[in-house]
Design a binder for these strands. Structure first.
Lengths: 208, 208
DNA sequence: ACAAAATTTGACTCTCAAGTCAAGAGTTGA
DNA sequence: TCAACTCTTGACTTGAGAGTCAAATTTTGT
């Protein structure tokens, strides 16, 4: 009864090539979305950066939303990986490590993806089909911060009113940072990022 | 030499009426932009809310950007006025007053204009012609917070690394609040807003 | 009541970006 | 080499929203 599948599967080599192409597209798209935001980037922009035409993109992705979601996922993975690496090479108290994490996160945002964070913070911009996926990404990312804060709380180094609220405030501030640090002359940026990190550390040290 | 102005100026009553109409339009537009953001609202939406057609809006404003800027101005004025009123009726230490200010600000954002704050925070969304105007609005608004913080610093109640950074972080967090508080069942919102206020107060009490 | 002025309408144009697709170019493997 | 498959092209359709405008409607002042 099962119909015999009449078409050959593509060879492995061809599949690998396809996978590579998809990665190239996702990287280009992630960069653009991260620089200018989802709505502001058209598929022609993405195609242009790759020196192809829009039509090709539709050969790999069936819609802008599908490409967009996949690209954000790529971006999120890379970002999280960089933060994890940072944590691996940073030893010390939760205080020291949390500060380093914040600093790295803001640095990535300011230097590499000035518009990326609002993609994660604002589900409003996304078609509802992709919301859940975005939330998951956000959660994984959040967990790096959360784990450190919990560790600090357990050790009595940190105090907070509500850990969720602290996380939300922290992320909000870090997401906004590119907007204001981006305007600064690059000489002043380093200092600005440091100040953000110092200031945000206050969130886990409630009152006198 | 001066050419005689051959056209009658409209009567005062007519002018007042025109002014009122403009206010109606601005109010409707400010509500919509505040709820859904600038790009997501078309002039047809605005017109629909007023039970007229798009064409009428162009009788009063020459472009969407002009209407948009004016509407944001209206919204900003109203918002600032509410905050000023709050301060008038709240006496006490800078600590008490700053907390009340934050609380009120977040409450307005969450209840009335969930998408409004990003219009102020993200110059990116605006055509460059309007940027400066928006920044001024933001500045006036900021000054309420800044004044209180400076007062607290002078009195030795507060400590900060950088007052500008604190303000930026505070605004970023308050702007984000509607996104996450909005998802909560309305019973939990009050508590959430309180926690945001408590948490943000930590920003002006830099640690031990 | 009526002419002039103010306002509103709705049909129109323009532009931009998403999405489609048949035909052509390039690759692969026998 | 050649047939089948993979990929790319560019011209196309479609839809949404900004902006225009002459004509119709409503308001105003006399």
């Amino acid at each position: 009864m099962g119909a015999v599948n009449g078409v050959k599967p593509p060879s492995e080599r061809v599949q690998r090539k396809r996978g590579k192409r998809i990665q190239e597209i996702l990287t280009a798209a992630a960069e653009l979305f991260g620089e200018r935001g989802y709505d502001a980037v058209s598929l022609e922009h993405v195609a242009e950066r790759l020196d192809v035409t829009k039509g090709s993109l539709y050969y790999y992705f069936s819609s802008k939303d599908e490409l967009g979601t996949a690209a954000i996922e790529t971006l999120g993975d890379e970002w999280t990986a960089r933060l994890e690496q940072l944590l691996e090479r940073t030893k010390g108290t939760p205080e020291v490590r949390l500060r380093a994490l914040i600093h790295e996160h803001v640095t990535i945002a300011v230097n590499d993806y000035p518009a990326a964070l609002r993609l994660f913070l604002m589900p409003r911009e996304w078609p509802s089909a992709q919301r859940e996926r975005i939330k998951e990404l956000r959660l994984r990312h959040d967990s790096l911060f959360r784990a450190l804060i919990e560790e600090g709380l357990a050790g009595g180094e940190f105090t907070v009113t509500s850990i969720d609220t602290v996380l939300q405030c922290m992320h909000a501030a870090m997401s906004q940072a590119p907007t204001w640090c981006g305007e600064l002359p690059s000489a002043a940026r380093g200092k600005a990022v440091d100040e953000v990190a110092d200031t945000l550390m206050a969130l886990v040290h409630i009152g006198p």
